[in-house]
Design a protein around this nucleic acid. Sequence first.
DNA 1: ATAGTTGCAAACTTTTTGCAGTGCC
DNA 2: GGCACTGCAAAAAGTTTGCAACTAT
Lengths: 174, 174
Amino acid sequence: MSRAGAEFEAFLRRRGLRMTRQRRAILEEILGSRSHLTADHLEERLRRAGERAAKATVYRTLAMLVEGGLLEAHDFGGGTTYYEPILDRDHHDHMVCIGCGRITEFRSPAIEELQDEQARSHRFTPVTHSLKIFGYCARCVRRRSPGTPPRRLPGPAGPVPASQPSGPIRGRPR
Amino acid sequence: MSRAGAEFEAFLRRRGLRMTRQRRAILEEILGSRSHLTADHLEERLRRAGERAAKATVYRTLAMLVEGGLLEAHDFGGGTTYYEPILDRDHHDHMVCIGCGRITEFRSPAIEELQDEQARSHRFTPVTHSLKIFGYCARCVRRRSPGTPPRRLPGPAGPVPASQPSGPIRGRPR
DNA sequence: ATAGTTGCAAACTTTTTGCAGTGCC
DNA sequence: GGCACTGCAAAAAGTTTGCAACTAT
C-alpha cells in the first residue's frame, strides 16, 4: 500500500473510523491524478474506473483527507474547490491564468520567510497561508494582446475586473 | 461629493449607466464603514440608515464598484465575499484569525517584489494577487493555548483542519 | 452485534437571473 | 420618452445534512 494509504488508515484508526471500499477508491484516484481535481471530477473518474461513490461520500472523504493532511483544498476563484495531494510534495503556491484557467505552481522560500516575519511582527501565529497570483500565462498574453475580453473564471464577485486600478499588483482575491 | 463618488459617476457615465439613489446609498455606506463588509451587512446597514436596496441591487452595484476599481472583493474562506474600499489606500494583504475571525492587514513591498519576480521568471503577466495568512491572533493564542477547538469559519471544505500537518506553514487555502 | 458508512434526496447558502414595473437623463 | 434600473421571486451551483439501509470490525 502506498505511503498515503497507510497514513490515511492510521488517521482513521486513530479516530475509530473505518477503511471502506469507497474511501480507498477515492484516495487512489486522487493520488493517481496529477493534481487539482474537483469533487465532480473525482466522482466521474471513479465511475470511469469502475468504482462508484455518491457525491456526498466524495465530499465527506475529501474533507477527511484534508483534515488528515493528505490533501490541500484550493479555491482558485471559480466557486469550486480543487483538491491536491500534498504528501511527499514541496509546499508551493499558484499562479492562475484568467485567460485559460491554467494553474502554474511556483515555490519561493524567500516569500515564506517574509510571511513568517510579518506574522511575527503582528504577534500572529500562522497556521497556513494561501498565495495566488492571477494574470495571464505566456500563451494567453501572446494570443490576446490586442485586447480580447477575459474569459469568465475566478472572482468571488464575478469576472475579473476590467479596469485594473493603479499601483502595484493589487490584491484582488478569489 | 467624495472623490469616490465622482470616480464612480465618471465610471457610470463612461458606460452610459445612471447614478441612482440606491447606487449612491450603497457607495456611501461602504465608504463610511471601516472595511470588510458583505453584501448582507450592507443591505442591513442600508436599512438601518433609512435607505433600502434589494439584495440583487446590492450585488449588482458591488460588482460595478469592483469593476470600477473602487472596491476590492475578498474571500476569507467562509464562503462569503467581503468588500473593501481601496481608493486612497495602500495595497495590503490579510491575516485571518481562525479563532475569532479578526482580520489584520499587513504590507510587505518585499513580498510584492518577490511575487513579480516569480511571475517574470514563469513568463506570467500578473494582474492581481491574493495573499492570506490563516492562523491565530495574539488574543486567541492566549485564550486557547490549552487546545480549544477552533471555531467554524473559513475553509472551502468546511472547518479548519484539526490536525495541521508538518512542514512549514503549508498553504492550505480558503 | 455494534457502531460507523453509504446513497439518495432534500436542505442550504450565497449569488445570479428573468421579468414587469419604475425612474433617470 | 427611451432605456437603464429596481425589486421580487425563481434559478443556479456547490456543498452539507437527515435518514434508512448497509457493512467493516
